[in-house]
Amino acid sequence: MSKKITETKIEANDLCVYYGAKQALHRISIDLFEREVTAFIGPSGCGKSTFLRSINRMNDLVPTARVTGNLYIDGVDIYHSSVDVVELRKRVGMVFQKSTPFPKSIYDNVAFGPRLNGITDRTELDRIVEESLINAALFDEVKDRLDSSAMGLSGGQQQRLCIARAVAVNPSILLMDEPCSALDPISTAKVEELILELKKQYTIVIVTHNMQQAARVSEYTAFFYMGHLVEYDKTRKIFTNPSKKETEDYVTGRFG
């Protein structure tokens, strides 16, 4: 098997994010690679979620948020005025900490994105829904009740449904904001398996508080602290031989 050549998918360049007068991110510069899983770790409030949310411009929803610097996806500056935020978000899917199934049927949840893109053909939708649910390792559990409400699923199933919903629009990047923090170990294991499976097709960025999870699923890890990017390297290196003292303290559990 030939060694995969990694290409830069997301490139941040001196990115700063402010909430009102408070600066949440300080001059972040980082390259995230295509079809790899990158984990963001760090204590709460360190800015890792803020950075994640600036990749699909969810920070725009915060009225006081302000962004300086540049963030490129496939070489396009996504904060340029010519960028359509809606189109951007269709390319950059997101899974949240709290599972957020819409109060609709399982089928309609997964078909939500494709329908937004104007797909109305029933057989085409059926195919996408089935494929997405298979990709999210949920199909076997729900195939007999696609028309029942998504609210009846368990927490782990709901989270995988949200992943299915996110991949149904075939995004190129998948952002995950602590996707397993509300799940039990078995569901977590399933989602992690899924992440490893999905990285064949998608560039995945995952925020996590769980070091083991970061070590298990990611190829690269970035350690954030106080709004600064402290260290970014191969996951193996971060966890075995970090070059910064703060990183070592954090990953060994001495603080945070």
Binding site: N56, M58, L61, V86, E87, L88, R89, K90, R91, G93, M94, F96, K98, T100, F102, P103, F112, G113, L116, N117, C162, R165, A166, V169
Partner: peptide
């Protein structure tokens, strides 16, 4: 819950689509 609105917007729905469809 506002999280539904966020989830919908993150799917690439417009504000109106989120309000009307979700």
């Amino acid at each position: 819950p506002k999280s539904l609105l966020e989830a919908s917007l993150a799917m690439g729905a417009t504000q109106w689509e989120s309000a009307y469809k979700v």
